[in-house]
């Protein structure tokens, strides 16, 4: 099961895969225990002639035990998840790059602030469906939408965030480790073109990226 996860290129979300693996093994063990017990019971206590069921109404002790065990496990999991959640869903501190992304039926528009590092000015650059970032740099996405709710999903970064109309969400950030071209599908139903609403994350080495910048904003 774990092998089906797409390659994780995120500096931030390595913890997600670890949690995933932890939950995976907990649930596998729980599943094997419960279903194993079920099968053993089904075979052992099947109806046989002359055999009578035992009148058992319950056992408070057993019930307390399994209630307690379950509670401890789920709370433990919750405790382990809090830091990861806060890490992933808090606004970026001192990001290296800021890019605004706008969802609009049925495209992602990436808006670069340009040399003045300010959005909403003359030198902004708006690209359709292509997000260029340098590797190993902290990138913050200011996510918004023009019409309906979209969801910005980068499987390889384990990141996903809904884009809300007329509202900017600043909690989406990442640091990509591997240069390459990755897909950014929309994950929230947004109309008949939802399937196929697709952008690309292009992770480049710093030199490539600088060259790209120089090309976009010639002095």
């Amino acid at each position: 099961m774990l092998g089906w996860l797409p390659e994780n290129i995120s500096e931030y979300a390595q913890g997600v895969d670890k949690l995933f693996a932890l939950i995976y093994w907990i649930t596998v063990v729980a599943f094997v225990l419960v279903i194993g017990t079920l099968i053993v019971f089904l075979i052992k206590y099947r109806h046989r002639a002359g055999h009578r069921a035992e009148y058992i109404e319950g056992s408070t002790k057993l019930e307390i035990i399994w209630t307690a065990v379950t509670t401890v496990i789920v709370f433990g999991l919750a405790m382990l998840s809090f830091p990861e959640w806060n890490n992933l869903k808090s606004p970026a501190e001192n990001p290296d790059y800021v890019v605004q992304v706008r969802g609009e039926q049925f495209n992602w528009y990436m808006i670069y602030p340009g040399p003045d590092n300010e959005l909403g000015t003359e030198d902004d650059l708006e690209l359709e469906n292509e997000l260029y970032v340098p590797e190993d740099k902290l990138v913050q996405i200011l996510l918004t939408s023009k019409d309906v709710i979209h969801s910005f999903f980068i499987p390889n970064l384990r990141q996903k965030q809904d884009a809300l109309p007329n509202q900017t969400i600043d909690t989406l950030k990442f640091q990509a480790r591997e240069p390459g071209r990755y897909e950014i599908p929309c994950a929230e139903l947004c109309g008949f073109g939802h399937s196929g609403m697709l952008g690309y994350l292009i992770v480049q080495t710093q030199e490539e990226y600088d060259a790209w910048v120089a090309e976009q904003w010639p002095e």
């Binding site: 949690l19 939950i23 907990i26 992933l88 384990r158 996903k160 994950a187």
Partner: peptide, 19 residues
């Protein structure tokens, strides 16, 4: 029920939400 635990876990849910 067990598959629900993945989704209840917020960091993992970020990834598997809407899949």
């Amino acid at each position: 029920g067990l598959s629900g635990i993945y989704m209840a876990n917020t960091p993992v849910d970020i990834y598997i939400h809407d899949t």
